[in-house]
Design a protein around this nucleic acid. Structure first.
Lengths: 178, 178
DNA sequence: TTTCATTAGTTCTATTTTAGAACTTGGATG
DNA sequence: CATCCAAGTTCTAAAATAGAACTAATGAAA
């Protein structure tokens, strides 16, 4: 994305949602209706706890009490987030075991697709938020056997993606206001 | 990351910070002290507005009024987030122009390094949150000339990264409680 | 068979964040 | 000299989160 200011105004600043209500600021629940994939995705994962819950999911955490004790968040909010992630089909809630029946939350394929988001966040943290000693956790790629990190490349040419080398255009899913 | 539950408890559930205050839940400002790169990164970008501000930055938005009108957020919170991003060195605030002198906020290199996070979020939104018509915005790679999306690969072997093919270990920057 | 423990929640009040709107400040502009 | 604009700050109201206690269903222990 270079400097695409006209497009920015057209797409993101189109203010469709706000205009309908005249003068009001955007509210969180309106985000999913914006013509922007960042806004739409953040309407699901863009709060203070959801990505930490998903981090735990990718580490194999599945049960309510486990999330609660690992994350240190209030049960109240945890229950709410699990419900939202379930209704967004990022997690599935399944009863398992017999006598006593317990509940578990597992990633769906849609949830698994968030892996690049988590891994990109991890790599930024390893690079910019670690102390002199280095990353708190290291990742091992079973396929090739090496320690590694996630790297973002162009889906077409495979080169490492740099923001300055990418420009944006209106896509088929954009629809102008009025 | 397969099923690494012992590690999860050790690293994320170590509860270092909470234990110091006995029984209290984790608060947001404590996140940066957790021995986890996800938590540390989210202490900077993990609120309801910051990633949308950064989306605009990557699109070339630089000035206060422009952020405000594109994002539709309150000036109050915008001022606060720009201040936090500046003190985290994700953005730099520079006066520019003469008579009148205006302020602009630009991405630092540290800020540019968040590009993979944004692009991973965009791709997930394009895949799972778009309607039948498709993505609202398409990306064009100047280097190779193709429409593309960001793809996360292993830094060592270049293969597409799958969560199930990655395991985690303690890294040098992890330090156990007590 | 009463008591206790566990899991997966819900309900309550208090505090913190965010929304919405108006006000301020330091130049330009007419 | 009055008005405009960019970049904020300040105020009250509403929403979200923290912190703690309570509930309901089951199973095990005394």
């Amino acid at each position: 994305m270079g400097s695409n200011l006209e497009l920015v105004k057209l797409v993101y600043g189109s203010g469709r949602i706000r205009d309908e209500r005249k003068g009001e600021h955007m509210r969180w629940r309106d985000l999913e209706k914006e013509p922007c994939s960042v806004a739409r995705t953040l309407s699901i994962i863009g709060d203070r706890w959801t990505l930490l819950i998903l981090r735990d999911c990718f580490m194999g955490v599945r049960r309510f009490e486990q999330f609660e004790s690992n994350l240190g968040m209030t049960r109240h909010v945890l229950a709410d987030r699990l419900k939202k992630l379930t209704s967004a089909e990022v997690l599935v809630k399944t009863p398992y075991g017999t006598a006593p029946v317990r509940q578990e939350y597992r990633l769906t394929e849609k949830g698994f697709d968030l892996y690049p988001v988590i891994m990109s966040i991890v790599h930024w943290g390893d690079t910019h938020m670690a102390d002199e000693r280095g990353a708190p956790v290291i990742h091992h790629h079973k396929t090739c056997g090496h320690h590694m990190h996630g790297e973002l490349v162009c889906s077409e040419c495979g080169e490492k993606l740099e923001a300055r080398q990418v420009s944006v255009d209106l896509g088929p899913g954009f629809q102008d206001a009025v």
